[in-house]
Design a protein around this nucleic acid. Structure first.
Lengths: 335, 335
DNA sequence: ATGAAAGCGCTAACAC
DNA sequence: GTGTTAGCGCTTTCAT
C-alpha cells in the first residue's frame, strides 16, 4: 500500500499543528471557520483518509464483527450471513468471516483468530462436533460480546437467536397427520444441539395431539443429503415403511424424495415429506418441497442487531437475551 | 473488551524493559536463554496475546483480505468464498466480506470500506451494474493488490481468475447438438461482462462446427430464475419453439425446466437443457440437470493464492496474470 | 545481553 | 483558537 496522506502532512503544508488539523477535521467547536475550511479543503485535495488502524489502537475498537459459522455453502447460513452483513453495513461495521467446516478443532482456531483480530463482537453458530465451549467462554471472559444463533447452548451466559424449532416441527408434523400419515419418520439432528431437541419435541407433541403413539424406531439421526438418502432407501423398502417424513433440513427431505423415486414410490401419493429451512432448492426440486421457512435472513439481521446493541450498552449487569424467530409452514407439493 | 495483558505488564513484573520482553518473545538471538524462558513462562501464565492492532500500526499491514462480491446466497459465490477462506486460513489471513448486492452504488461504498479498513489486498467480482471501474482504479492507485474473479474487466491493470467460459459453453452446446437439437436457444448474461461474451462465443462456435446457422432471434438476455422462466414460457409456446437451451447459469436452466413442465413438454424428450455452474440444485432438480461445472471452490482458492503471491512480491514491475479455471461438462438427465 | 528512546497516526488533556 | 505533550502497544535502532 502506498504511503498514505496523514494529518501531519496537512499540518506541515498548512503550517499548523497536527492537533489543530485533527480538530478541524472532526468539527471541533474551538476551531475557527477559516482554518477548518482550509484544512478540509486541503484534506479533500490530497485525498486524506484517516488511518483506521491508528484510530483502532487509540480507541481500542475496530468496528469489526467476527462471524464463526459452520459452512458458508449451506443456503441457510448464507442467508444468515446476508442478514448480518446488511445490518453491519448499515451501521458501518465490517464483518470477518471464519468457517469452522463443522470441525471443532478449526473452530477453536477461529475463536483464537477472532481474539487476535480484536473484533468488537462475535456472532457464532458452532459446529456439530462442538461439545466443549471453553473457547467461547474465553471470548466472554475477555468481555467480548458474543451472540449465538441457530446452534446455541445454555452452558454459556450469552445471547441467543434461534428459530422456533418446536413450533415449526409441530406445524410440519401436524400437516403430515392431516394429510393422512400414520407412520411418520423423523430424520433428526444430533440431540446435543438444542435445535435437534426442539424439533424432535415438536414432532412428539404433534403426534400426541392426534393420539398417535410415539415410536422411537421411527427416529433416525440423518441431517445430510447422503446419510438421509441412504437411510430412506433402507427403510422405504420395509413392508412397514413410513408414509410420512419430517426431516431436520431441506437437503435431507430432498434426499428422501430421491430415495422414494428410486423405489418407484409416489410423492406425495405413497410418501409425504416435509422439510425444514425453505432453501432455494425446496422450490426447485420435484415435487416441490413442503417445508418450514426459517427466515434465515431475518435471523441474521436480528442476531446482528442484538450484538450491536450489546456493543452500545457497555454496562456490566448483563442479562442474556433469547430471541426466537418465527417459523412458517410453506405448503408445496410434497405433502 | 477487557484490558489485555501487554508487554509492559510482563516487563514490570519481571523488572526488565519492554524491549527485552519483546525480543524474548520473538526469539531474538541476543537474549539469554534464562530471560527468554522467564518471559515466555510469564507470558503464557498471564495469557498474553500480542495486540494485533499495534502490530498493524507499526507494520502497516493487517493480514486481512477484502472480498467484494455480488451476493453470498448464490451457490457459485459461496463456493468461491469457501475456497478463498480456505487459503486465507492456511496462510493466517482473515477475510472481510462486503456484498454489493449487484448494486453499483453499494459497490463503490464497499471499495471505500476496503480502503478504510486498510486491508492488504482485495478480491473482487463486480456487480452487473458496474460499467465504471474508477472505484477499483482507486484501490490500484493506492497500490493495493486487487484480483478480479468471475466478473472481470480488461480496463484495469489487475490479475484475473475466470472460468473457461468459451470452452464450457462450447462443450455444452456441442452436447446439445449431439443430442439432436437443431434450434438451440441461449439465455445469456449481459454482454458487457466478459463471461457473457465468452459463453455466447462458445455457443456460436459450437453451432459453427456443426454448420448450424447462428440465429440472433434465439439469443435472450436472461440470467435470473424469474426472467428465465418468463421468457422460456413465452418462447416455448411458439410453433417454432427451441428444442434445446443453453443457459448462463443453473438457476436459469432450472427455470426453463419448470417452464417446459408447465407446458407439458418433456425434458429431455421435447426440450433439452444444459446449464452452467454445477450448483447443488443441479443434482436436486427433476430431471437432474446437465451442466458445466465451474469449480467455484478451486476458482476461489486460485484467486486467493494469486493475491497472496502479489502481497509477497512487493516489486513494482507488475505484469497482470490471467488464470483460466477449467470447466467440465457434467452429463445428467436434462440433456 | 539489556535498556532508552523514537516512532507508526491519531486524539485529548492541559497549557497559553 | 491553537500548540505542546503524552500515550495507545509494539518493534527497533542506537547506546552501553
Amino acid at each position: 500500500m502506498k504511503r498514505q496522506i496523514t494529518i501531519k502532512d496537512i499540518a506541515i503544508k498548512l503550517g499548523m499543528s497536527t492537533s489543530t488539523v485533527s480538530r478541524a477535521l472532526r468539527d471541533h467547536p474551538d476551531i475557527s471557520p477559516k482554518t477548518r475550511a482550509a484544512v478540509k479543503e486541503l484534506a479533500a485535495l490530497l485525498g486524506y483518509r484517516p488511518n483506521r488502524i491508528a484510530l483502532n489502537l487509540r480507541s481500542n475498537e475496530t468496528r469489526t464483527l467476527g462471524l464463526i459459522i459452520p459452512e458458508i455453502e449451506h443456503y441457510f447460513f448464507s442467508a444468515i450471513i446476508n442478514g448480518i452483513e446488511e445490518i453491519a453495513y448499515k451501521n458501518d461495521y465490517s464483518v470477518m468471516v471464519f468457517q469452522s467446516n463443522e470441525s471443532y478443532k478449526r473452530e477453536v482456531n477461529n475463536a483464537q483468530a477472532v481474539l487476535t483480530n480484536r473484533v468488537d463482537g462475535v456472532l457464532v453458530s458452532f459446529s456439530k462436533e462442538t461439545k466443549d465451549f471453553s473457547h467461547f467462554q474465553k471470548l466472554i471472559d475477555n468481555e467480548i460480546p458474543v451472540v449465538f444463533f441457530d446452534r446455541v447452548t445454555d452452558e454459556l451466559q450469552a445471547d441467543q437467536v434461534v428459530s422456533d424449532d418446536y413450533q415449526g416441527a409441530f406445524l410440519a408434523v401436524n400437516h403430515l397427520i392431516e394429510k393422512g400419515c400414520k407412520r411418520i419418520a423423523h430424520f433428526a439432528a444430533p440431540q446435543h444441539l438444542a435445535l435437534g431437541k426442539g424439533r424432535l419435541s415438536g414432532y412428539h407433541d404433534a403426534l400426541l395431539k392426534h393420539s398417535i403413539p410415539f415410536n422411537s424406531d421411527l427416529i433416525f439421526h440423518a441431517d445430510t443429503f447422503e446419510s438421509s438418502r441412504k437411510i430412506a432407501h433402507t427403510i422405504l423398502k420395509r413392508p412397514d415403511r413410513p408414509d410420512g417424513f419430517f426431516t431436520v433440513n431441506d437437503m435431507s427431505a430432498i434426499a428422501v424424495i430421491k430415495a422414494a423415486k428410486d423405489l418407484n414410490l409416489k410423492v406425495p401419493g405413497d410418501v409425504h415429506i416435509v422439510g425444514f429451512e425453505n432453501s432455494r432448492s425446496a422450490a426447485l426440486c420435484e415435487p416441490e418441497l413442503t417445508t418450514v421457512d426459517q427466515f434465515g435472513y431475518d435471523l441474521g439481521r436480528e442476531a446482528c442487531q442484538i450484538l450491536l446493541r450489546r456493543l452500545k450498552e457497555k454496562n456490566s449487569n448483563f442479562k442474556p437475551e433469547k430471541k426466537v424467530i418465527r417459523t412458517k409452514l410453506v405448503v408445496r407439493a410434497s405433502a
